[in-house]
Design a protein around this nucleic acid. Structure first.
Lengths: 253, 253
DNA sequence: CGCCGGTTTGAAGAATTTCAAAGGGAGTGG
DNA sequence: CCACTCCCTTTGAAATTCTTCAAACCGGCG
């Protein structure tokens, strides 16, 4: 983990440094991005479908998700976003939002004007490349979720999702370890929100999670996930980190 | 429809002109892209998961799809690609393919070296912007498919997919009309391939298509789809063109 | 004419949803 | 500090959607 980063831009710097190596100049340029920080409660819509934003959101702390409400009120969640993510970077290039962005926990959100981002991308092409790479990885995650929802069992889906979250939290240094080397990450979303992400009903999510607990693979308490058997959880979830395109694959013992 | 376009680059030019307006200079620059054209049979893998391509593929004619094989042989198709699409543009920025690209019909495929694309994007920033926009729309389609697979009934899923294909074929001028103003598009894929796209079994796809025929919404013959009741098909499929971000929404009577 | 891949059909089975109700747990107000 | 409340989770039972299996059918092509 890089300790050069501090302040409100730190999560973004950490995030980008898993995509590529940042020079001092680039770090300075990113740190100079104007950032209007706001504290947001859980369950607030930050950007709405149909909006034409002139700024993008950096998640500084907490959990957010992108989603769309379809037909008779069903919700599909497309992605979860943790500290360092810019979930709506694409609004720079696609004016009209075709989905919404919402917090799932209390969160710190920083707003960056598109103008500033454009200037950054013009003056620091290497950073632009990182941001684009990031957007493409975003798409890779969508594809993997399609595999989940379309072709995996409910048990595999939830396991896979938990594996992804663990891997992403670890990548940005936000996962903790127990004495026994079990990984701990925040899991602030409700089971309804897990279901909306993986195309499952609340009831079934509950049953599947119970099964994972019974199998001794995980435990959950106080909105916190502990992975008790990482190897097994990966296997049940048919999980392979490839699609996350991490530069240095973090290895778990 | 723009008639300035001819030759093997024409499908790409038509495709980009639905994203933005092309100047003569841009048309010239795109037409100058080196293009190695190959005729490919149906069902051939063009790019494989794990590859590190140095060129990207332009679909000049025919149908292709991106997909991944998971777990015990199940296949998830992520997207269909018609003439003018560059399905693996992203391999310029993400070295290692996390999925495969395959033809679904006999096709003409043009290979463009990444180097040439990079040069184009550097010298024609507006074209670069269009290509990026295109990549982001790609992601928007993934998201809509997630809604389909995760939250819509089988009948709605198939209807929605057919609506999308009709809309995309129309956008690039590849849809025909009957005397009665019904839209006709190619539908070369098998029902197994439709199922793999929408997370359904062959059997169920067959039943759903039968139902759509019985309802009088569509007819299919000789790998060709005729939409008999566009309004109704859209409604059944909960279809809204928003997510395709077309510049000029093509209106159907 | 016969083959072959793809489609259709029927029947049985599995996974998941829906409905309904009870059970917890964390924060709030008395 | 207790009791209440609200939201979330859990459980059971019935219903539904979709899958699987198996077999027949169909249409284009050699």
């Amino acid at each position: 983990m890089d300790h050069r980063f501090s302040g409100r831009h730190a999560p973004l710097l950490r995030r980008l440094s898993i995509v590529g190596t940042l020079s001092e100049e680039q770090i300075a340029a990113i740190s100079a991005l104007p950032l209007t920080v706001r504290k947001v409660n859980a369950g607030q819509e930050i950007v709405r479908q149909g909006d034409r934003p002139t700024q993008s959101c950096l998640i500084i702390d907490g959990l957010a998700c992108r989603f769309k409400i379809i037909g008779q009120g069903a919700r599909q969640i497309f992605s979860y976003h943790i500290a360092g993510d810019i979930p709506d970077l694409q609004s720079m290039y696609i004016e009209r939002m075709d989905h919404s962005l919402s917090t799932l926990s209390a969160a710190m959100v920083g707003y960056i004007p598109h103008r500033a981002l454009e200037h950054l991308m013009q003056t620091q092409p290497a950073v632009a490349r990182m941001l684009w790479r990031d957007a493409l990885i975003d798409g890779a995650i969508f594809r993997e979720w399609m595999c989940n929802i379309g072709r995996r069992s409910a048990l595999a889906r939830i396991s896979h999702l938990l594996c992804e979250l663990v891997t992403r939290y670890r990548a940005v240094g936000l996962a903790d370890l127990t004495k026994e080397n079990s990984v701990i990450i925040p899991l602030p979303m409700t089971q309804a929100e897990l279901g909306d992400a993986q195309g499952l009903s609340i009831v079934h999510v509950s049953r599947v999670i119970k099964q994972l607990k019974t199998l001794g693979l995980i435990s959950i308490s106080r909105r916190t996930l502990t992975v008790l058997d990482w190897a097994q959880l990966q296997q049940v979830g048919d999980f392979d980190t490839d699609y996350l395109h991490l530069r240095d694959e973090p290895q778990l013992s």
